[in-house]
Nucleic acid binder design. Structure first.
Lengths: 213, 213
DNA sequence: AGCAGATTCAATCATGTGATTGAATCATTC
DNA sequence: GAATGATTCAATCACATGATTGAATCTGCT
């Protein structure tokens, strides 16, 4: 390679711009200008804008999936009635995502994921089928084991709630305008603890509410 | 007017398309084609694409704000130690939004709000300052009254969590692919109850967690 | 040195974009 | 029924978009 690591530089700049303005709000030309490369290089290395988008995500999505499933595996070895099981399940969901923020490029990934549901369907659907849906099923079945009385609908909703506020809490564009701080604190472990406490308590709230009548 | 209610038809079609593909994914030409009107009509009636987007939102955003503040007013008249106060606060946040789904055009509005944070900054920032931020402050101060020991950070996070999963739970594009159902159930009251239970329990979980050490 | 394959480049294609213009059409009022 | 103002229209502007091409350049190998 003449330029050192052109491909990597494209990926870095693309990640930042996709995170900032979304897929439709970002143009290949703008990416390549910031990366200092010709527009054709993007097509040479990736083939199309859509493939580039997917490549940006693929740099992180697999590692985080592995970490989640590994943590979930530990949960599976716990008895269903273990006192902290629900907390551990949500920890397995949140921790790998939050820990990514201390990794180079992790913030960009988190912001891309936060706007994931708003991106063009044809872009996100294959990603969902390949990666997110299998993970989701594992979590749902583990949540079911922890709360066998909850309906499928309640389980699906709870998981959706957790994913939703995990993703958006890290990137809330309004957070800085009311609180002075960035939505991403220095104390990542504290943030994870807050996420886990809220999600587990909410989930347990549903459990006891359904147990009433 | 020659065509009956051209302006209204533009707003309806624009709402559907903005909800489906977002601001950058939607073109004026596509809107006007579906509405059966000339492109220039959009500029005649609204002035620009950005103003049209704002007009689409403004049709609903005020009514829902009034409803929220009215419900919150009732909370303010309750003593801080009232047993169901937290639930009523979150009810005031969720119910007006969910009830919108039974109103003509309400689903489109909900979907637009769900992708709100992903839209271009210059579009959403004025809307946030004008409408969402004042409402947010009222809710935060009421949550503070219900939980005086929680830090500002916890209050801000809790409110952000609640808004996040309220908005996304109604429009999750993947919901139909795992559960058979639409994310919007027939039983809106049941959905509201689920949202309230989860949010209030999560919030109370934070309260008791912070009270420990 | 010279070859071959990988990489980068400027230039261009076809299409789509928001916006604007000025003429045509409509509805209303006197 | 003519005049007036509101509305709609086809046509066009200036520019941005993703993609492609073929020539130039670089790199590593013999």
């Amino acid at each position: 390679m003449s330029q050192p690591d052109t491909k990597r530089r494209i990926l870095d700049v693309a990640a930042r711009q996709f995170a900032e303005r979304g897929y439709n709000g970002t143009s290949l030309r703008e990416i390549m200008r910031e990366a200092g490369v010709n527009v054709a290089a993007a097509h040479y290395h990736f083939g199309s804008k859509g493939v580039l988008y997917r490549a940006v995500i693929d740099r992180f999505v697999c590692r985080i999936r592995e970490q989640r499933l590994a943590l979930l595996e530990e949960c599976k070895r716990m008895p269903a009635e273990s006192p902290g099981l629900v907390e551990r399940i949500f920890y397995a969901l949140f921790a790998p995502h939050v820990h990514l923020l201390h990794v180079e490029g992790g913030i960009e990934y988190a912001r891309i994921i936060a706007r994931y549901a708003s991106e063009p369907r044809e872009l996100i659907l294959p990603l969902y089928k390949d990666v997110f849906e299998p993970v989701r099923q594992q979590f749902i079945s583990e949540l079911h084991r922890a709360a066998p009385d909850l309906s499928d609908d309640d389980l699906n909703r709870s998981y959706g709630f957790a994913v939703a506020f995990m993703a958006t809490s890290l990137v809330d564009p309004t957070y800085e305008s009311h609180s002075g701080n960035s939505p991403i604190p220095d104390d990542l472990e504290g943030l994870i603890a807050t996420l886990v406490t809220f999600a587990a308590a909410g989930f347990r709230g549903l459990m006891s509410e359904r147990g009433k009548s």
